[in-house]
Amino acid sequence: MNRFTYARPADLAGALREIARDPGARFIAGGTNLVDLMKYDVERPTRLVDVTRLPGLDAIEETAAGGLRIGALVSNTAIAYDARIGRRYPLLASAVLAGASPQLRNAASTGGNLLQRTRCYYFYDAATPCNKREPGSGCPAIGGVNRIHAILGTSEHCIATHPSDMCVALAALEAVVQVAGPGGERAIPFAEFHRLPGDHPERDTTLCQDEIITAVELPPEGFAEHHTYLKLRDRLSYAFALVSVAAALELDGGRIARARIALGGVAHKPWRMPEAEAALAGQPAEAASFALAADRLLAGAQGHGHNDFKIDLARRAILRALSQAAAGTPQSQTDKRIR
């Protein structure tokens, strides 16, 4: 861990000024990921800009469009137990509860959850090469220890996954990320917020260094009737997903009117494929349709040895999640029996 300076600006403008002043500066809120990364010498910020006292970012509010606006400082716990979210966006609450532990969820912020970094072993170990940590140094996960790594959207430079559960639900719900920067505010559709590694695995998102997340907005449609968050992992709690599925359906009788499927644990970002979802429209809500969607979602999936099993697992998980969603029996995050 390196030495750093610390600032606690009183307002958003102050925070943006602080971050613009020093390219080595980082925002810190809950610190549940950043502090770990600093201890491992993965992140070596010269200055920490504490945003926890910024006013106006810690509320969940109605939007004019009929959705909800979740401030960037709202804790993961507050999302999980918010009555409106529970009623209108239960998929989001479920995904949040599938992640981390109560202690971490109490500390972790909404904005920070979006920005948490991969759990790749090599990324965490400064004694090894890693293109994400040190561009150009190589990716030992390819051909190395990679059972937790990606099967979709990888590049020759990086096969890391995005670790968040919450983001998988936000992707399925087509949330919008509100950010502020020196040039003012802008909105980033969730699908465009996280990026694939390509030639720049060091960049996880499309957020600029001098920008800050102010809120995440949920559109009105919450798929409260037919949804599930199914997370498969190496123990029954407190482990990152090997594969997770956020499924949301709108049914019209026995047929699917609309479908959203996002996968976690398989790519550098929550994995969605609008064509696969579109193809489900009008189909009967049954196993054969779900299988077709799984085929499309996993087209081109590629294992790297230890994680070969994820392709089969993801397929099975998609089928089960869609059948849970269709039946209106979402996966419980407390009873660990899979429905």
Partner: peptide, 16 residues
């Protein structure tokens, strides 16, 4: 878990 090319244990934290 060991990376035998690096000769190093890799999941050296309680998360992994």
């Amino acid at each position: 878990l060991a990376d035998h090319r690096l000769g190093r244990f890799m999941n050296h934290n309680l998360a992994e």
